[in-house]
Amino acid sequence: MSDPRPDRPAGWVLGHVAGAPVVLARSWVLAAVVLTLVFAPSVRKWTGGGGALPYVVALVFVVLLFASVLVHELAHGLVGRSRGQQPHAFVLTLWGGHTTFGGAAASPATSALVAVVGPVANLVLAAAFLLIADRAAPDGTLLQTVLRAGALANGFVGLFNLVPGLPLDGGRILEAVVWAASGDRHRGTVAAGWTGRVVAVGVLLAALVRPWLAGVSPDLGTVAWSALIGAFLWSGASAAVRGGRTGRAVAALTLERVGRPAAVVGARTSLAQVRATAAAADVAEVVVLAPDGRPAAYVDTEAAGRVPADLAGTTDVLAVSTPLPVGAVVDGTLRGDALLQALSTASAHGPVVAALVDGRVAALVRTRDVVAALRG
Rank of each mutant, 00 (worst) to 15 (best):
R5A: 07
D7Y: 11
D7W: 12
R8Q: 13
A10F: 10
G11Q: 04
V13S: 09
V13F: 02
A18W: 01
A25K: 00
V34P: 10
T36S: 08
S42P: 00
V43R: 06
R44W: 00
R44A: 15
G48Y: 07
G51M: 04
A52N: 00
A58E: 09
V60R: 05
L65D: 01
A67S: 11
S68T: 05
H72V: 05
G80Y: 07
R83T: 06
Q85I: 13
V91M: 01
T93A: 14
L94D: 06
G96I: 06
T99F: 12
F101C: 10
T110E: 13
A112L: 10
V117A: 07
V117F: 07
G118W: 01
P119R: 05
P119C: 05
V120K: 07
N122D: 08
N122K: 08
L130E: 06
I132A: 15
D139G: 15
T141N: 04
V146D: 07
L147Y: 05
L147M: 11
A151M: 03
L152Q: 03
G155P: 08
L159C: 09
N161Y: 01
P164E: 08
P164K: 10
L168S: 02
G170E: 11
I173N: 12
A180K: 15
A180Y: 07
T189M: 14
V190Y: 06
T195K: 00
T195I: 09
V201C: 02
G202W: 09
G202Y: 03
L205D: 09
A207I: 08
L208H: 02
V209C: 12
V209R: 11
R210C: 00
A214S: 13
A214C: 00
G215A: 09
V216R: 14
D219C: 12
L220R: 12
A224F: 15
W225V: 15
S226K: 02
I229Y: 08
A231F: 14
A231W: 13
S235W: 04
S238T: 11
A240I: 00
R242V: 14
G244W: 00
T246H: 03
A249W: 00
V258C: 12
P261T: 09
A263H: 04
G266E: 09
A267R: 12
R268P: 00
Q273D: 14
R275L: 05
T277R: 15
A278M: 09
A280F: 01
E285L: 04
E285P: 02
L289E: 02
A296V: 00
A296D: 04
A304T: 08
R306N: 03
V307W: 11
P308D: 13
A309T: 14
L311K: 12
A312T: 11
L318Y: 02
S321T: 04
S321E: 03
S321K: 08
L324N: 04
V326F: 03
V330I: 09
D337N: 13
D337C: 03
D337A: 15
L343I: 11
H349A: 15
P351F: 05
P351G: 09
V353C: 10
L356N: 08
D358H: 08
R360M: 02
V361W: 02
R366V: 06
D369M: 04
V370L: 07
A373E: 13
G376K: 11
